[in-house]
Nucleic acid binder design. Structure first.
Lengths: 149, 149
DNA sequence: ATAAAAACAGACATCAACATGTGATTAGTG
DNA sequence: CACTAATCACATGTTGATGTCTGTTTTTAT
């Protein structure tokens, strides 16, 4: 569903979201904290910087921080430049060209699933992921299914 | 969402579902019909045969056909041996190990999406995809969004 | 001010998995 | 027996996911 790179990006952004105003944190620290390969994370953060999601400061005491307030950064913003989710919406395998499977039927089902997915990415901001230790109302099944994207 | 191989598989299976009892159709015909690379399709069909979804007949007039009635073959059956969807459910990146993002929050959202997706694959059978030209009630937006998985 | 250290930035390099193509081989059907 | 079609083995291109090394700034301490 989500690639590893996408997860790294989300995790890194969430961490950056907890920083105080004007504070920076370096790649090695982020990498260790979220359990991502430092080298790879470097490239990823650069990409996020190019995408305008984070800004960087060189030199000692420098590093990365969010370019905009955490509330205004949606998960889709992060994932899009990495995974090109929009391709699912814009173009792709056109079922209607395939007389074997009923196009409308399939499109209808797929569309609902995909739309839900994209909508989730759109409606969730980085700030939403930072619940800052607030005890979340326990989901009944939390022990059975910690799975993954 | 779905890999190309998975799509090829679903399309091929749907085509096979339209065959008459005891009829076989060969790889080249299937490939041409669904627009898939013949060579690759060959391998794929073998895999599906190993998975017990299709049976093959060698020699002239041979080919592939469904091993079970189309009603009893769910999309998940087809996709699973190819894409290992079950991995999403069984194991994977455990958000609870990552204190940066609230685990329950994420799990909850992801779980819902993933469950919906898997459920769709489970509740749709090959037979469902064969509407045999029956005019499907036109979805209002069918012209705007023929997209894809 | 100048040197040293701490970071970002970017160019290669590798490994696995997906997606395909080619050719030889073998097994049935007609 | 000849033809056809599955089966199998090997080869290639691409993309995702990483690692390594080499700059090149910029800050900080002397």
């Amino acid at each position: 569903m989500l690639t590893k790179t996408g997860l790294h990006a989300i995790r890194a952004m969430t961490l950056l979201g907890r920083l105080a105003e004007g504070e920076y944190v370096g790649t090695p620290v982020i990498a260790k904290s979220i359990g991502a390969p430092p080298n790879y994370l470097g490239k990823l953060l650069q990409a996020l910087a190019r995408a305008g999601l984070v800004t960087s400061q060189k030199g000692a005491g420098g590093g990365f921080r969010l370019a905009r307030p955490a509330e205004s950064i949606r998960l889709l913003d992060i994932v899009e430049p990495i995974e090109h989710v929009s391709r699912w919406t814009n173009r792709g395998t056109d079922w209607s060209q395939c007389p074997e499977a009923d196009p409308l039927f399939m499109n209808d089902r797929w569309n609902r699933i995909r739309d839900d997915y994209v909508h989730m990415l759109q409606s969730t901001s980085v700030a939403d992921l930072i619940t800052e230790g607030e005890p979340v109302p326990a989901a009944a099944n939390s022990s059975e299914r910690y799975t993954m994207p």
